[in-house]
């Protein structure tokens, strides 16, 4: 199996398209970092304590206003609490771009990484058919099951490589251009002020983005394998990835969309607590995705193993 993966990896990197994908990713990461640096106006916040004091005074004044609506009251209360927290804990706000901020940007381009992985994912099988090389590949003492498995593993390896490149590069570039964060961000959870754990948020964004990542790749691989046409597979998976929520909204009237994978594949819904349709549990989402993942994989393998090769 290692040999087969080595083969697929070698073929992948001998195609110009693969290098183009890597270059695109590098350009986006470096480009955005540099643009951020160039257009950033460095804010000097050495007197942040006076500012926080002023915010408390301001909030108190506003709260005196008669007939203030509930929403505003809450807002000013929170403003007050946060400012107080900063003064009590000597926690300066983060006002400039930082290494952490750049890392968070990295996590936010998981959609791009997914799109870029879908392209070879759709063609890794189908191109063997269109090139006619499939007959050379399948007349070896290696079962079709192993051949297809090696291709699937290779594509995920490729995707994870892109993720790794993104993590490393956004960290290094962020550190060089901006340095580490000097302040902290705050959030209020259940009425209690807390320091945001930026690293944990970044980590969770990466992890939860693996939903779309995995499902899009499996879908592209499945379509590419069954229809042996890379273009159809790329087009369909990109369409679903970009327009997934819209398609779900449209279909909502006609079918029970909670059983469609597109409703669940963006797992960051659970991080944001904002749902396309209605709130579901993480367990429910994972269960639906699991079922579809199995279906995509099973159909890919069944067609690939059974089909007559006429190339």
């Amino acid at each position: 199996m290692f040999n087969l993966i080595q083969n697929e990896w070698m073929k992948l990197w001998h195609k110009k398209g693969t290098w183009a994908i890597l270059v695109i990713l590098l350009l986006v990461i470096i480009g955005v970092g540099v643009l951020d640096k160039v257009f950033m106006e460095e804010v000097n916040d050495s007197d942040w304590k006076q500012e926080q004091q002023a915010m408390i005074t301001d909030a108190n004044t506003q709260l005196q206003t008669p007939d203030l609506d509930e929403w505003s009251i809450q807002m000013y209360e929170e403003q007050k609490e946060m400012a107080q927290y900063r003064l009590d804990n000597n926690a300066a706000p983060q006002v400039n771009q930082s290494m952490e901020g750049n890392m968070a940007f990295g996590a936010s381009i998981m959609v791009l990484i997914t799109l870029l992985t879908v392209i070879p994912g759709a063609s890794i099988v189908s191109q063997e058919f269109t090139d006619g090389t499939i007959k050379m590949l399948l007349t070896r003492p290696v079962s079709r099951f192993k051949v297809l498995t090696s291709k699937l593993i290779t594509i995920f390896l490729f995707g994870f490589t892109l993720i790794l490149v993104t993590i490393v590069l956004t960290t290094v570039i962020g550190f060089i251009l901006f340095g580490t964060a000097t302040g902290v961000d705050l959030t209020i959870v259940d009425g209690v002020v807390q320091q945001t754990n930026t690293m944990k948020d970044i980590f969770l964004t990466y992890v939860y983005s693996l939903g779309d990542f995995t499902m899009s790749i499996l879908f592209a691989f499945f379509i590419g394998t069954v229809f042996s046409s890379p273009s159809i597979a790329i087009a369909l998976s990109m369409l679903f990835l970009m327009m997934g929520p819209m398609i779900i909204m449209l279909l909502q009237k006609y079918i029970p969309v909670e059983y469609i994978w597109l409703t669940h594949s963006d797992l960051t819904q659970h991080l944001r607590k904002e749902f396309f349709i209605e709130e579901t549990t993480l367990f429910m989402s994972l269960a639906v995705l699991g079922v579809y993942a199995i279906i995509f994989i099973a159909l890919s393998f069944m067609t690939f193993i059974k089909r007559d090769v006429k190339a």
Partner: peptide, 30 residues
């Protein structure tokens, strides 16, 4: 199939690789 060598119609090789890399590729499958 382990003791069979075969050419089916035109042998289609991986055009984007060298002849040698192609042979390395297939040799790893035996």
């Amino acid at each position: 199939i382990s003791n069979v060598g075969v050419i089916v119609e035109n042998p289609e090789m991986y055009k984007y690789m060298s002849g040698y890399k192609n042979l390395i590729h297939f040799s790893r499958m035996h």
